[in-house]
Amino acid sequence: MNAAPTLATTTAPSSTAHWPDLRALHAFVTVCELGSMSLAATRLGVSQSAVSQMVKALEASHGLQLFDREVRPAQPTRAGRALLAASQDLLTQARALHEQVRASARQDIAHIRLGCVDSFAATVGPELIRALSGTARQIQMWSGLTPGLSAQLQSRELDLAICTEMKLDDARIQQRLICSEAWVLVLPKDHAVPPLTSARELGAVAGALPLIRYSQRSVIGQQIDALLRHLGMQAPRRFEFDATDPLLSLVAAGLGWAISTPLCLWQSRQYLDQVTVLPLPPTRLGQRDFYLLSREGEWPGLGQNVLRVVRQLIRQDTAPAIARAMPALPRPALICPDDDLSSSSP
């Protein structure tokens, strides 16, 4: 009886088994050009044994002898000459790829995509762009709400983002504190203001006027809602806006009162002569913070530069201008931490 035929099994070769080692190819080509492993080692800045090992590894990977070592100096075999001819083009392409990647990185640095919350973009933003104009040939700035900007950063539509405080689940996103500002009370110009010794007296200060709110879909609206809950206030929801301009226009018209921040009011400063701005007594939830958001390990030098420039602009320009326009507020209205650029928010 004939034995049943057997099926031969083969192992699929690794997809990288015959990929060339570019360092070894470079060493091989250098030996061929100079006719000596010692001279090749000197040019490459490695030991002669390292060159010899790379050549032997290249021979082993191809299963071919690349040099005839019976003659002095060693000469490439037929297989070696074939590899030499092919290697020249491959190494040229590898160098071109390397330069292309480096050029792309330089181009990325020259093109900055920056996102800022509206109040920041409209106040500090123009001077920030001016300060960065020598760093990059092209700068794009998007403005919007913090949730949208952080999502754009995570999807790589933005390189950096300046947002108010937000809890991010993405550990790859680094948050660095830029500045902090306190909440302020905004009332119609002619509204009588009794002495305010506690933030819990807000209801009495407002009287019968309704609260004009920032919308709940904005971080500032959520933060003010948390502040009101902390103070035990239950103001009906009547007027809500994403932006400060319409909010202040209603306060200026005597239709209500609001809680806002110095930077938001500076953004809509055309209404400042029609409203009264007062500080709120300190509370546990008495301020909002701005952070520079960036992806971990990317843009380290640029991020530090932006952080330094923004803090300098706030200290030298924005904070003094706000102090002059709203003298009832404590100084400075915006507070920047010390320039320890190595620290970050958790």
Rank of each mutant, 00 (worst) to 15 (best):
A3L: 10
A8Y: 04
A8V: 09
A8S: 08
T9K: 14
S15H: 07
D21G: 01
L22E: 09
H26G: 07
T30K: 13
E33P: 00
G35T: 07
S38I: 07
A41W: 14
R43D: 13
L44K: 11
L44E: 11
G45P: 10
V46L: 07
S47I: 02
V51K: 07
Q53P: 00
H62F: 01
G63T: 11
Q65M: 07
Q65Y: 03
E70G: 06
E70P: 00
E70Y: 01
P73Q: 05
P73K: 03
A79Y: 02
L84A: 04
A86V: 04
A86H: 00
D89E: 13
L90N: 00
L90D: 03
R95L: 06
A96E: 12
L97T: 03
Q100R: 14
Q100I: 03
A103M: 03
S104Q: 13
A105E: 02
D108S: 07
I109G: 01
H111K: 04
I112M: 02
F120N: 02
A121I: 11
V124M: 08
G125Q: 02
E127G: 01
L128T: 03
R130Q: 08
R130P: 00
L132E: 08
A136Q: 01
R137C: 00
I139C: 01
M141Q: 13
G144A: 05
G144M: 09
L145H: 06
L145R: 04
L149W: 04
Q152C: 09
L153D: 09
Q154S: 15
R156L: 07
L158I: 02
A161Y: 06
A161Q: 03
E165K: 06
M166R: 12
M166I: 12
L168C: 04
D169T: 00
R172N: 14
I173A: 08
S180R: 15
A182M: 11
L187R: 04
P188Q: 13
H191V: 14
V193A: 12
L196N: 10
L196M: 13
L202E: 11
G203S: 10
V205F: 11
A206N: 05
L211D: 11
I212C: 13
Y214N: 12
I220M: 14
Q223P: 08
I224E: 06
L227I: 09
H230V: 03
L231C: 06
P236Q: 04
P236G: 09
P236E: 08
P246N: 05
L247A: 10
L250V: 06
V251D: 05
A253Q: 08
G254H: 05
L255W: 03
W257G: 01
W257D: 05
T261L: 05
P262I: 05
L263Y: 12
L263C: 05
L263R: 11
C264A: 15
Q270M: 06
Y271M: 06
L280T: 06
L280I: 15
P281H: 02
P282A: 15
R284E: 15
G286W: 09
F290G: 02
Y291L: 09
L292Q: 08
L293V: 03
S294G: 11
Q304S: 04
V309D: 03
V309T: 15
Q312C: 08
I314L: 15
R315G: 11
P320A: 14
A321Q: 15
I322G: 08
I322C: 02
L329Y: 10
L334S: 08
C336D: 13
D339F: 06
L341D: 13
S343P: 01
P346A: 15
